[in-house]
Design a protein around this nucleic acid. Structure first.
Lengths: 222, 222, 222, 222
DNA sequence: ACCCGCGGGACGACCCGTTACT
DNA sequence: AGTAACGGGTCGTCCCGCGGGT
């Protein structure tokens, strides 16, 4: 018992250290020596908890996915929000974590960088694609959208577009402008998928969501 | 003289081999041994033409950028096309090269993967951002767009979105569906930025452009 | 515990092997491959114990210095010997080790060859200079010397001269004649610094010291 | 003719560049690339003039030896100087060149560093040993010395001692104090080999020689 | 059960001295 | 004389287990 508690703590430390290292330099440049040193354990301990370097990466991706999916489920459960609002909330929530949460940052880098695994990671993308397609379908069923863009097409664009926005934001500002860029993305998407008369309300809603997201709020405060 | 010809050929061979290797496994997993073997030269020859592994990557990025920018300039010069059409033509052209041209594929991977250099590569992004902002400004000046989305915002979304679309297409289908996905992107963008009455013609134009792009044409034939 | 014993043994083996290799071919021609092979370990083990090739060299110099300084301290403590005798004893002792002890031989080569480090090694020289200046001062205070040569000048000559004698002996006979040459050096020095009437006894003392030093004794036996 | 002039000039440039490089970093750390770059020629030109890296070193040692031996012959020819004075003049002359002349500096380093060739270089030492033994014999024949130290013993000490003095001077002051140290060496040697009554004149002679040597003169001027 | 000290191989990038062919 | 290329080999170091302790 007490043993297990200690073991889990060590495991966690290793993952945190690995997350930090991978976020900084990427998977292939991250070394187990640096990770174990930063975690304050020996490589022996590291190999007791993980089979290989790849298994650490896998654990990290899984952990990140669990974090963001849990948040997504929360949002999905809210009864009062429209499907469109839920999409924007998810984008804002993930955006916040992409700025703040080391594990999420590392997980995204592992997913985005193509050098990590032989086969590219598809799972996380697939989950998001399904979630967004479902929400888009729901929105169309409720008459919220114009119906000109099929839900699957919409999802199939938003997810990659979001991926790209986050990546380029990292490239230019280390994600400091990420929430603004996501906001702008939605200002464009709203005009593409909502009927003219519904756009003003949705744009106001977007303003509200991205103005009150954690990162943006922090910048206002500064 | 004749010497130089042969030397340039060798240099080219090395770059092609490096492009192929980097496209496949990424920068940090690509080894100089594999590159020189695939190029049919020794590492000594490689070292004669390039100072380091990084300098090969830099040469590759530069080469790719020259290729796609040359094509872009061609498109910019066409007198009969509207700014919007030019944007779509550029997207289609780059899409084709992202499917066919080994150097362009490698260059994009080097630009997208963050592990390649200490500092992320910003130059190519910047060039595209400027080009697209100019075209968007021109379109607005000609009354082609609604004017609701500022040109800079539009450019600042299209470039990252395109980046993401290409990246996710690679992840799922090794870019076999890339042109379709870009086509869909424009079907959404057109609805976001053009007035309703101008949309049908633009959508038809998009259909035409992406139907006749090389990659799509090849698939039709197959 | 038992662990550490084994580790230290390995470390020692590596140092011995390195000493032998460096003594033979010098620092820059000595390869880590040859050293680890000769030590019966892999380069991995070597890398575990030392940070770099240079750190092996540093460890070797330090080890050698500790060996010869320990011996020197022993000699300094002898109550019955005159300062002059102590100097000769030290020269003989170091001479013996320069013939027999692999670590001392390697250390001296590392110190003498200028190619080893960016900055030349000064520490060992400095220690000897101080020791000999002190002894010379003592000898003068006891009225043993003529006082015509200041102690600092004497030390500043003996140490370099000894260095050169050892180096040239290595060049011509691989140090087989080293003790004889040091003996001759003292036959000259005695005449330079002692008053005429004290010279015969000192020369006899020198004869005794260098006749009974290990190397000379060995040659007699052979 | 003109061809040969040009060729010899190139050869000279290469040797000068090699001398400078070797003086700085030693033989094994000196690279042909650096040498040819510094000489302003290609490696092709370098290999036209020399068979190998070692042959450059050999040419350098030979050149240095020719320089210092020519100077020595000049000194030997002087009719008015005593053998002892000639020895001191030679030491001063070589000392000056060890400070000023790049080729001599490189040559000495090649001779002193043991890593240069398989077999250590003995020729230059041998020449000096013979020269000094001859002068010592002459001095003894003229009754200048006490005769207590056999000429061969004296030469066999002076040459190595000089070697060591120069080496340690390089280590501590980059030879800035070399002439002073050689002067001190002779102040000791004079007391070891001359009868008491002859010492004052010889010491005055030494003062004169080392006070007017180029390097010392330069320091006075500064 | 949990952890670690120590060591094993395998390459990786770099680069160096040297040579064919003009 | 010079351009272009060749191999070989160096140091570094990375990812990973074996065997023992606690």
């Amino acid at each position: 018992m007490a043993r297990q508690v200690r073991a889990l703590a060590t495991r966690e430390q290793i993952l945190i250290a690995a997350a930090d290292e991978i976020r900084r330099v990427g998977y292939s440049e991250a070394t187990l020596a640096a990770i174990s040193a930063s975690a304050g354990v020996t490589t022996g301990a590291l190999y007791f908890h993980f089979d290989s370097k790849q298994s650490i990466a896998r654990a990290l991706i899984e952990m990140q996915h669990r974090i963001v999916r849990t948040a997504a489920e929360e949002i999905l459960k809210r009864p009062d929000e429209s499907p469109l609002t839920k999409m924007m909330l998810m984008c804002a929530d993930l955006g916040d974590r992409l700025v703040d949460d080391p594990v999420v940052r590392a997980g995204i880098r592992l997913t985005t960088d193509q050098s990590t695994f032989e086969k590219p990671v598809q799972e996380p993308y697939r989950d998001w694609l399904i979630t967004f397609e479902d929400l888009a379908t729901e929105a169309e069923a409720q008459g919220q959208t114009t119906g000109e863009i099929p839900p699957v097409v919409l999802a199939r664009f938003i997810i990659p577009a979001y991926t790209g926005v986050q990546l380029v934001s990292e490239t230019f500002t280390e994600r400091r402008d990420l929430l603004e860029r996501i906001h702008e993305m939605w200002q464009i998407l709203i005009r593409a998928i909502l009927p003219s008369d519904a756009q003003p309300a949705a744009l106001a809603e977007a303003d509200h969501i991205f103005a009150t997201s954690r990162s943006t709020a922090a910048m206002q405060g500064a």
